[in-house]
Design a binder for these strands. Structure first.
Length: 256
DNA sequence: ATGGTCGCGGAGCGA
């Protein structure tokens, strides 16, 4: 099974890039974040022509997640089952065969100490409890998406400049570690140990052109999913060219 | 560099 996670920074202006990705890699599953489209306007027909069905959780202007797949998605879940957080469209999950997938757009957090930062930490704590309650790490479980969090300084182009700042602060990394403690592994690091591997680059500072980015888009896998995993690659080409998202897609390949 | 550029929606916010 080939599975992609991609923060598209709005789906509709990115649809031709999505089409290219589907044609080039023929993924079985695509987890999208920041679709920024209400469900009624989701481009279902265009994606169906490309051979993909979709389960969506949309919202006007902000956020929005969706899972595309070539086969029907089953046991679909939406949100975190918590009214404190479910006014924002950030979580959708489904089962594809024996693989459970949870697609996340984690709260950004703006800056350390802000209301949004505290909201982020509370959101991540709720995510931990939700995964613990609802998912079985003995199954093939893949939790992927835009985590808006780095694991360590290898994921940061200038660790000193980013020290104690979103998305590199210790409380954020601790919250991510808590989630990992449920039995999840950072699948990218199973195959790539080197520093300087990024999935996001700031538009404003022309970060991509300068090679200055962060690794914040992740595949967390349970042990059985990781044992089936054959590769995880960042698709840098999709960050280049005309009208890219500020995130690159990440592609994981699993044996059947 | 507390700037810069996107996307949305039609001003200012979020990232």
């Amino acid at each position: 099974m080939n599975i992609v996670t991609w923060n598209v920074n709005s789906l509709r202006p990115r649809l031709e890039r999505v089409r290219t990705l589907l044609e080039e890699h023929a993924p079985d599953v695509v987890c999208l974040q920041e679709t920024k489209v209400v469900d009624e306007l989701f481009p279902r027909d265009e994606l169906l022509e490309m051979g993909y069905t979709a389960e969506v959780l949309g919202q006007k202007t902000y956020n929005g997640v969706a899972i595309l797949a070539r086969e029907p998605l089953e046991d679909v879940v939406r949100g975190l089952d918590d009214e404190r957080f479910d006014d924002e469209a950030r979580v959708i999950g489904a089962r594809i065969g024996d693989v459970r997938v949870l697609d996340l757009y984690v709260v950004n957090g703006q800056r350390v100490g802000s209301v949004k930062y505290r909201h982020k930490l509370a959101w991540m704590e709720r995510l931990h409890d939700y995964v613990h309650e609802r998912f079985d790490p003995d199954e093939k479980l893949i939790v992927c998406g835009d985590f808006n969090c780095t694991f360590d300084d290898r994921d940061v182009h200038d660790p000193e400049a980013w020290r104690d700042s979103v998305p590199c602060s210790e409380p954020e990394r601790d919250a991510l570690a808590q989630l990992m403690s449920l039995g999840l592994r950072d699948a990218y690091r199973r195959f790539h140990e080197e520093a300087g591997q990024y999935t996001w680059w700031d538009f404003r500072t022309r970060g991509f052109e300068r090679g200055r980015g962060l690794r914040i888009d992740h595949f967390l896998m349970s042990l059985s999913a990781l044992e089936a995993c054959r590769s995880v690659e960042i698709l840098h080409d999709y960050r280049a060219g005309e009208k890219p998202s500020d995130h690159a897609p990440v592609l994981a390949t699993l044996a059947d």
